[in-house]
Computed example of a mutant assay.
Amino acid sequence: MSRPQLAAARSDLDPDDGWSLPAWVYRDPEFFRVETERVMRPSWQVVCHLSDIALPGAWHTLEFLGESIIVVRGKDEVVRAFTNVCRHRGSRIVDGSSGCARKLVCPYHAWSYNLDGTLAGVPGKDGYGALDMSEHGLAPVEMEIWRGFVFVRLVPGGPSVAEMMAPYEQRIAPYRFEELRALGRVTLRPRRVNWKNVADNYSDGLHIPIAHPGLTRLFGRGYGIEAEENVDRMWGALIERPSANLSERMYQKLLPAVPHLPEDAQRLWLYFKLWPNVAFDIYPDQVDFMQFLPVSPTETLVREISYVLPDDRREMKAARYLNWRINRQVNAEDSTLIARVQAGMQSRSFTVGPLSEEEVCLRSFCRRMRSLIPEARLHQPPEPGWSSRAAVSRAR
C-alpha cells in the first residue's frame, strides 16, 4: 500500500505519522539554525553534579551553541548559573571545564565578580562616570537541580526537569543519584554526523539484536523501549546464560548485589533520553550521563562522564571496569552505524522511510520535531530563506 493509500485508510491520523523525518533536515544549514532556536535553546542541558562543585568557589562550565555557561557554588553554598562573559567588553572570564576561585576575574581588564555574580571590582572605576555596579553583574542563566544533577536552559518556558522525569521518579529514587561521585572526568567525542542521528540511534530498539551482539548476549531478546511525552525509556535485564565473550561473562559473574536497589533492578540496565538530547545510562554499578551537543548540521560533540556511589568491594570495582569495556565496544558499533546513516542521507534517492509501530520513540521524536518546525514535513528542502519567510508569515 502506498503512502497516500495508507493516509486515506487512516484519515484520522497525521499523514506523516509513522514516517521518518526527511533526510535533508539532517544536513541543511538553514534547518540547523531554526532547530537551534526552536528545539535546542529552550531545552535543558546537564552541566555537572553537585558533588563536582562541593566547595564554595568551585565551578563547572558547559560550551553550548556558542554560549559558555558557568555554574558556581557561592560562599553562601548556593549554586548559581551565569554566562561566562564579562559585562565590560564581552571577554570570556574563565577557561577550561572546571576550577575553583574566590572571585571570578576577567583576564582582559580585571573586572571582578563575586561568586553570586555581582560585580565586585572595576579598575579605574572613576573613569566610567556614574557606573551603577549593581546593574553590571554576570548575566544569569535559568538553572534547575534535579536529584543532584545541575541543569541549565538558555530560553525559559516548558516543563521543568522534575516534571519531565515525573513518570519515572519511583523507578529512579532507589539509585540515590544525590550521593553520586564522578568516576573519571568528562570526555568529549566528536562525531561527523547530525545530532538527530545520534539521538535517533540512542532510542532505537530494532538495531540492538542486529548491530550489538554483545548486548544481545547479555539481554537475549528482552530489550524494551517506551516513549513518554518528554522522555524515552529503554531497558534490558541480564540473562542467566553465561556469555561467550570473556568481559561480558565476567561482568555477569562478578556484578555484586546492590543492597539499596530493589530485586528487579539488581541485573537491569536502564536508559533514559530526556527531550531532546540528554541521556542517562543507569546500571546497578554506575550512572552515566551523555549529551549530543550540536556543532553544525553535520557535526556533533558527544559529552559524557560516569558517576558512582562509594563502594570498595573488589567485585564492584571489577564490574565497573568490565562495564566500561563492554560499552566501549557498543559505542564503537554505534559510531559506525550513525556514520553510515549520515553518509546514506546524502543520496538523492532517500527522502523519508517508514517507521515500524515498534519504533515508538522515533515516532514520538518525529512528531515533536514536525510540531516545532512544520517544514520538517517537506520531503525536499524549500527554497533558501524559507525560515525568514515563515517568520514574517507568523508575525502577520
Rank of each mutant, 00 (worst) to 15 (best):
E358V: 06
A237W: 05
V34L: 14
L322T: 08
E315P: 01
A237E: 14
S203W: 02
D334L: 03
E77V: 00
L238W: 10
D116Y: 13
S203Y: 04
N230P: 01
H260Q: 09
R27I: 02
R389Q: 15
F64C: 05
I145F: 06
A265V: 02
R181P: 09
H207D: 07
F350S: 02
D285G: 09
M40I: 12
L372T: 09
D264W: 09
L254R: 13
T300R: 00
S371W: 06
A173H: 09
E35Y: 08
H379S: 09
A110F: 10
R189D: 10
L337R: 00
R368N: 15
Y321M: 03
Q329C: 00
M316L: 11
I70K: 12
R191Q: 15
V25H: 07
V79K: 03
V71W: 07
M234Q: 15
Y283M: 11
G96E: 00
G214I: 08
A9S: 14
K75I: 00
C106M: 10
R325K: 11
R340N: 10
Y223T: 11
A391I: 08
D12H: 13
C361I: 06
Y128T: 07
E135K: 15
P256T: 03
A23V: 02
V25M: 14
L104D: 05
E63N: 14
A395V: 06
L238T: 10
E63I: 12
W386F: 14
H109E: 11
G96W: 01
D116P: 10
G157S: 12
